[in-house]
């Protein structure tokens, strides 16, 4: 089966400029390994150094965000389904690297995501910087598994406004995607 489809899969990847793609459950070890590979690969295809650093940074924030989201569901019956649903791609389109990732989210979490993302899309760099500094100085709630800075940082490092989508999959889940162009 895969033999017959692989050509189509390959063409689809190429059409989207996807250089590296992986799916499934993310662990810290995998994030580190993939991160090093992403860096090496982009350097080998002569992506400018600053773009390599930015891509690496966006990649780490996106994957750690997803991993933290999955961890927040640990111990619940939907954990496996969410953790296995992750996809992360790194591509190059019109000479600009991008990181695009997706994962299932519980439907009740979709609104919160949208609430956090939509203001970032309309903010300019100066606005994002001020927001970043404000959040950086806020106290972190004791149960937080992140600093609340990840998405703001991704938006700051991207050269264009972030793009995202939330698509209903079934009564329980939506599929969330986030794309950041370096």
């Amino acid at each position: 089966m895969i033999h017959e489809n692989l050509w189509q899969v390959r063409n689809e990847l190429q059409r989207n400029g996807i250089l590296i793609s992986f799916t499934g459950k993310l662990t810290q070890e995998l994030i580190e390994e993939y991160g090093a590979a992403v860096k090496q690969y982009l350097e080998s295809v002569n992506v400018p150094r600053n773009n390599v650093f930015q891509t690496f940074s966006i990649f780490i924030e996106q994957t750690q965000n997803i991993k933290n989201y999955c961890s927040s569901k640990s111990g619940t019956p939907i954990y496996d389904e969410i953790a296995q649903s992750c996809i992360v791609t790194i591509g190059n389109m019109d000479d600009k690297p991008y990181v695009c990732s997706g994962n299932l989210v519980e439907k009740s979490d979709a609104a919160g995501l949208e609430e956090r993302l939509s203001p970032l899309i309309t903010m300019d760099k100066e606005g994002l910087k001020q927001l970043y500094k404000t959040v950086l100085k806020q106290d972190v709630p004791p149960d937080a598994n992140g600093s609340g800075l990840g998405l703001i940082d991704i938006a700051r490092k991207a050269s264009r406004p972030l793009e995202y989508s939330i698509t209903e999959i079934d009564p329980r889940f939506s599929f969330f995607t986030l794309k950041a162009v370096v």
Partner: peptide
């Protein structure tokens, strides 16, 4: 390189 939670 320093990620956002380390920055915090």
């Amino acid at each position: 390189y320093i990620n956002t939670s380390s920055t915090k």
